[in-house]
Design a protein around this nucleic acid. Structure first.
Lengths: 330, 330
DNA sequence: AATTTTAATAACAACGTTGTTAATTTGATT
DNA sequence: AATCAAATTAACAACGTTGTTATTAAAATT
């Protein structure tokens, strides 16, 4: 049997509304009574019933995260951080692995206070809009795709920073290692920026294509390109996992990083600094992303009808570490 | 503004209790009325409020899954299938990535009808027991660890099957490639079974250790062991990911599978048959695991106080595919 | 046509909580 | 001691739904 505030009220010899107030730390109840009630509640192992609370207060203190592709490891670090961040605001994070539309339906039924949707190459988010829900939605992906508030971390700009950094160091042969997928627009944006930026500098482009984003794909592709005729002096990697593969390949081929090969990686995560060799990386700090997302979500739960389709653009930055230097010219 | 049954009632010109019954397809309301109400509900985009429903009917039709290590890719296939399976029973799956204790608290507050907990090397499940919740818990891991109903897929027995199969084919030098982690009991169980089974046949044991379970780890380890003095004629792989690495290594070393190297892999998943070379594998079919888990969960939601600490043991099986044959003895 | 049975709908209480309003107790002021 | 204000607690309505009971309308029986 579940313990309710009525049980506590009976034991404490007060009315249940007093218990409710005491538990919510209302100033309307005396300190001594409050303490007494609190101890009794603790003793009895009371857990508030969200359903009842939600019903009257219109708040569930939960945020739903739509995550159709649990398999993909990439955003898991981000999700973990968002979860932590939301906890600070007293929000609970619930994940659904259903397709976007049915996940939204679930969260609508459960009346979460906000919904976060990740860009997903496999779920045609846009086609199904607008969704039938009155819960505020936040979209993490590219701007201009949806009428919902969006957080865009400027993947293109990040890659531009990488090219610029390497060019400034004097590199001429800069390769990009990543997935040239025509379905994944996030990858497209990065490669597009690489192309653009290289063109504008009149430098030869080399895109080393991979089929999947696992570390081993990076390894294979790197082995190949690093053994080619005109080996690049620098590689821009599309992600952390790929970078790990590239480093392994370089080590195996006895190429010194950064003396013989500079490496810049997309993804601004702490792990970049903890590799055998700390890696120069570009992107928005994942902690910052998580912070901004959490904050925006909390904000959305509050103001019902503010800033409908606005876009928050986060400026990526380059963090120089040990993996880049001027090319070894001889 | 959310649409409630009262809104529908007004529009349909009936009482709200009739609407409630109509929506639940009760025989107590006339067919014509029922149809009318159903169309209006559809038109208005009605979504039932779970909180209210839960409050009165004591059912949320949701199952909470505790999944602290979202990063780990392994069980994601399983979770996806469980989700599908539960949907057939009209249940919604909610994931929480919090630590076990706080995830349980969340699900208790949300009053899910059952909780599923995965073995997790990082969360000390046992230490914190018993948990303060009245929601039935199902544990997916090793039997004998908890007082909760447990589903055990006999990882040890699976590996024994693999050894037996290879031995019967005439292999003498059978290596095991996997993680000999002293924290991960699931891996321990597999390696332990390998040791045992090899000992009882008086065969030399070779455990090829890896540090992580990614495909690249399998690749590296396989390259190493396959170039060693007394190369094994067969490898038992601890997981699907590792197996992929092993196959790449074999291809690279121009070793023919199965003529020069037999491979048996743990994990009974469809992907095993879809690799370049279909792989002989051991384990319980992941679909069956999902089915059994879902069924047990549904059952737990029904009978409050039945079969408290029982264990469901699933018998693993060996599916012979193209990756195993008698060793090439010359 | 009057009565009984059945079908269909309406009314109402509950679920556990919060917020508002009403009642009581306590303390201060005369 | 009587009155008023403040502090504290109790009572009650509401949230959206379900299940039970009461009411009404229609059909069947006499």
């Amino acid at each position: 049997m579940t313990i309710t505030i009525k049980d506590i009220a009976q034991k404490a010899g007060v009315s249940f509304s007093t218990v409710s107030k005491a538990l919510r730390n209302s100033p309307l109840v005396q300190d001594t009574t409050k303490r007494k009630i609190l101890t009794i509640a603790e003793e009895m192992g009371y857990q508030p019933n969200i359903a009842a609370r939600r019903l009257v207060s219109k708040k569930s203190w939960a945020v739903g995260v739509v995550w159709p592709s649990v398999e993909r490891a990439t955003p898991s670090i981000l999700i973990t951080l968002i979860n932590e961040e939301l906890e600070k605001h007293d929000y609970t994070t619930l994940l659904s692995m259903n397709k976007i539309d049915s996940a939204i339906e679930v969260f609508t039924r459960f009346q979460t206070d906000a919904i976060l949707i990740f860009y997903d190459r496999d779920s045609s988010f846009i086609e199904q809009m607008p969704y039938q829900t009155n819960i505020p939605i936040l979209y993490y992906g590219m701007s201009g795709q949806t009428p919902y508030p969006t957080i865009d971390v400027g993947r293109g700009e990040a890659i531009r920073l990488a090219v610029e950094h390497l060019a400034r160091l004097g590199h001429q042969r800069i390769a990009y290692l990543g997935e040239p997928s025509y379905i994944d627009q996030l990858q497209q944006e990065k490669i597009g920026a690489y192309m653009d930026e290289m063109d504008s500098r009149n430098m030869d482009k080399t895109v080393v294509p991979i089929h999947s984003m696992e570390s081993h794909d990076g390894y294979i592709a790197a082995i190949q390109v690093l053994q080619s005729e005109r080996r690049p002096t620098a590689i821009i990697s599309g992600s952390y996992d790929l970078t790990r593969g590239i480093l392994r390949a370089a080590a195996e081929l006895k190429l010194d990083v950064p003396k013989q090969l500079s490496v810049v990686s997309y993804d601004h995560i702490p792990q970049m600094a903890e590799l055998e060799l700390p890696i120069t990386s570009v992107g928005v700090d994942v902690k910052r992303i998580a912070g901004v997302i959490a904050e925006k979500l909390v904000q959305l739960t509050a103001n019902q009808s503010e800033s409908p389709g606005d876009v928050i653009r986060l400026r990526p930055e380059l963090v120089q570490r040990a993996s880049t230097s001027a090319p070894n010219v001889f």
